[in-house]
Amino acid sequence: MAYVALVTLLLLIQYTVYTLMCGFARGKDTVVAPATSGDETFERAFRVQMNTLEQLMVTLPAMWVCAYFYSPYWAAGFGVMFMIGRLVYRQAYMKDPASRGPGMMIGFIANVALIALGAWGALSQL
């Protein structure tokens, strides 16, 4: 379970970095709070941050359920896969939002695997 805890912390660090990058984009491009629009670079950074937050609501519980009922190694592995997907997603989205698909799919596949393995493990113990 230590690997899952470490991946959880890495995902939280990644999200915190994305939040800071969003804040820097806000200040750099003078988008005054509470506004969330007005500069394309800021809007992209904001969408990356918010989409990552939305996805973490699936990833974190699914990863822990998968770790507990199926395997902490598989859970940590798919957690890392999700984290890589988020990095690919961010890099692509900041350049051209239309190119975000591959990063999104990497994260989506990781989440589906975490949910499926967690469900398989939990159901097999009934």
Rank of each mutant, 00 (worst) to 15 (best):
M50E: 10
E54Y: 13
R47Y: 06
M83Y: 02
P102S: 08
C66S: 12
M50Q: 12
M81L: 14
L114E: 10
R86D: 06
S71F: 11
Y93R: 01
A98H: 05
V17W: 07
I109H: 03
M21Y: 04
Y73P: 01
G38C: 06
V58Q: 05
R26P: 01
T30Q: 13
A98E: 09
V31I: 15
V112G: 02
Q49D: 02
A45Q: 06
L12K: 03
R26T: 07
L9W: 11
F24W: 09
A92P: 04
W64P: 05
S99E: 10
V48N: 06
S71M: 12
D29T: 14
A92F: 00
L9Q: 08
I106P: 01
P97I: 09
L9H: 04
P34S: 15
F24D: 06
T30C: 10
I115K: 03
T59I: 08
G85E: 00
S99T: 14
M104H: 11
G79A: 10
Q91Y: 09
A33L: 13
V88M: 04
E54G: 09
T19L: 15
N51S: 13
I115M: 09
A45L: 00
Y70S: 10
L20F: 15
F82V: 05
K95Y: 07
W64H: 13
Q91C: 03
P34G: 11
W74P: 04
L60R: 08
Y89D: 00
W74M: 09
L20Y: 12
L114Y: 07
D96E: 14
G107Y: 02
T41M: 09
L12F: 11
L10R: 02
L53Q: 14
Y18L: 14
V65R: 01
Y68M: 04
V80E: 03
V48M: 05
F46I: 04
L12A: 14
W74L: 13
V58P: 02
A113N: 09
R44P: 07
A110S: 13
L114P: 06
T36S: 09
L87G: 08
L20H: 08
T19K: 06
